[in-house]
Simulated scan of single mutants.
Amino acid sequence: MVRIHPSILSADFVNLERDLEKIATADGVHVDIMDAHFVPNLTFGLPMVQRIAEVTRLPLDVHLMIDDPDTWAHQYAIDGVDSVTFHAEATRDAVAIARELRARGTRSAIAVKPGTHIDRVLEHLPEFDMVLVMTVEPGFGGQAFMADMMPKLRQLRDRADELGIELALQVDGGITDDTLPIAAAAGADVFVAGSAVYGHADPAARIDALREAGMLQPGSLER
């Protein structure tokens, strides 16, 4: 199944409630939390997430690009937040965070940057409900899709299948009608799209087009 999570990083922050309405047909809202330390950009924090949850019926997919998620991640496990993603590169104990999030009723997700090996994620895969493979360097929108990240997706999907677990695989960065099928063929099923949705006059139509692109994906890539 193809799930589209538009990133509000590409929305108009001054008219955010209006722009949330424009993506009402999406499967979720991707909310990037950046602290200007783990990544060079700065967005917003928990109070904004709480307010977003109040004005949309869509589940929130919170992506923490912050230092010390061990201290902060569980605070985002609030009503309206479906999943909290933290970075493997920033945590001291990924398993402890994942278990705490699940205990609070939120899906646990871990992200890996392009230069990060996924061995430690594979080692503890049953602890996570979703893995986010970054297909750009995190911190800014509008970057080009990195197709050389596809082997990570294939490894993760193969391992999940071997273990017999349900695992969502998300990609974030450079997702368009052309790149989405590439990631889908490698095993991804949740797609973060920013400018590919909000960069057009009709975001709802763009969501439909991205879903269609996923359904028309080519056959499995060679392994």
Rank of each mutant, 00 (worst) to 15 (best):
Q217Y: 13
A184L: 09
L9D: 08
E212S: 09
A160D: 07
F86A: 11
R223L: 10
L216K: 13
H63C: 05
M146I: 12
I97G: 03
F145M: 12
T176Q: 07
A196P: 01
S83N: 14
E89T: 07
A204W: 09
G105T: 04
L64G: 05
D35T: 02
E100I: 12
P59I: 02
L9W: 05
A184D: 08
P138Q: 04
L60H: 02
L163P: 13
L60A: 08
L9A: 05
G187M: 13
T71N: 09
D202M: 03
L180S: 06
M65C: 03
A184Y: 09
P69Y: 01
L216C: 12
P59A: 03
I97D: 04
G141L: 02
E137N: 08
L42F: 12
M215N: 14
E162Y: 15
V190N: 14
R102I: 10
P181F: 09
G141F: 01
M215W: 15
A103I: 07
P40V: 08
L156G: 06
D32Y: 00
I97H: 04
T106Q: 02
V192P: 03
P6M: 02
D61G: 05
M215C: 15
W72E: 00
S195G: 14
H5R: 15
G199F: 03
F191D: 01
P181G: 07
R102W: 08
A188G: 07
D79G: 02
I110A: 06
V121W: 06
S195N: 15
R211Q: 08
V55N: 05
P126L: 14
P203K: 07
V131E: 02
D82F: 11
I8L: 13
I33K: 00
A73W: 02
T116A: 11
V112D: 07
A160W: 00
A205R: 07
R99M: 11
L64F: 11
L125P: 02
A209V: 04
E100L: 12
D82R: 15
Y198K: 06
M134V: 08
V133G: 05
F38Y: 08
G214N: 02
E123D: 15
A193L: 11
D67W: 08
D178G: 13
D189R: 11
H87S: 08
M215K: 15
A26G: 09
F128A: 01
